[in-house]
Design a binder for these strands. Structure first.
Lengths: 162, 162
DNA sequence: GGCCATTTAGTTGTGCACAACTTAATTGTG
DNA sequence: CACAATTAAGTTGTGCACAACTAAATGGCC
């Protein structure tokens, strides 16, 4: 209302808007992280560790590589993270017999059992935010489009600005 | 389309949905970060450093405390970050004369001059994503509502689950 | 004035993200 | 078979986020 988006915005306007959108996404990500941090403390998991466990609960045991593809994380992030999960007794790492390069991440009984306690997490989050299924779906779609556009942009930047 | 959100979703459905929204926001944040990383490399700034500079360009020099309020970051994050900006010659830190506890972050000439080169950043980002002003504003509003809800939830969690 | 709670920065320790690199296993090719 | 290229995981180094803490300055209160 107060700030009408004129078609011909100045550079300064763009910079201000940039601050806003940058900040919004950054803040949203950290706020999200913060709420999960509280809820996940009971489970002894960090937010990224929870993401890994979600994938394992859904997909069964996977090599680190596949885990990374699901989460778009590389071994530099996953190796120590999975090692911490192993330290907590939630997963075990096993060298694949067929391909000795590959390490399969397998849920322990304890790790599999943790899923039961995790089932309440989404409801606690949803309840906390007051967002419904529709709104969550809508936001997700919005974010996925953004990510898709940004990924394509990243590729383009990498190619054109070598 | 394929996955119709039934009104009475099971715990497992919620967990799956949770994975999706968690992942979407996490991925969007990192994708955003990645595109900025490329664009900001020319300026010698990281993404959080860019956020600090945006605030300083917009607000003028500020004490660390105020900077933290604008960005929702505490001294644990800002102190070393600002020190790195000082190392790069973009800002200077000055103890306030009136209140010796306070440290004022002031742009150097070099830091102020960097704004000129930063003016092209938002356009490069916007062009890369293909998002228009409206869509950016819409997403921003969506994210801000989410952050607001999450912040309120964090407070509530902190109080109720002490 | 003396004392205590508050406020502002900064420090320390843990964990994540990512670039750049190393190591070891595998694959492809002559 | 030998050897180069590729692939998977791990390591190292830098920077950010945040909790918990310390140190110093300030303000309020008796």
């Amino acid at each position: 209302m107060t700030a009408s988006p004129t078609p011909a915005a100045s550079d300064a306007d763009w910079l201000r808007l940039d601050r806003q959108i940058c900040f919004s996404l950054h803040a949203a990500s950290r706020a999200f992280n913060g709420v999960y941090r509280v809820v996940l403390k009971d489970l002894g998991l960090t937010y990224p560790q929870y993401l890994v466990m979600l994938v394992l609960w859904e997909q069964g045991d996977l090599p680190v590589k596949k885990l990374g593809e699901h989460l778009r994380l590389d071994s530099g992030t996953l190796s120590p993270l999975v090692k911490r999960l192993e330290g907590a007794g939630l997963v075990r790492r096993e060298r694949s017999a067929e391909d000795e390069r590959s390490v399969r991440v397998r849920l322990t009984d304890q790790g599999a059992a943790l899923r039961e306690r995790a089932l309440e997490v989404p409801r606690r989050i949803a309840a906390a935010t007051g967002f419904g299924l529709e709104e969550i779906g809508e936001l997700r779609e919005h974010l996925d489009r953004l990510t898709g556009a940004l990924d394509a942009a990243a590729l383009h930047e990498a190619q054109s600005c070598g």
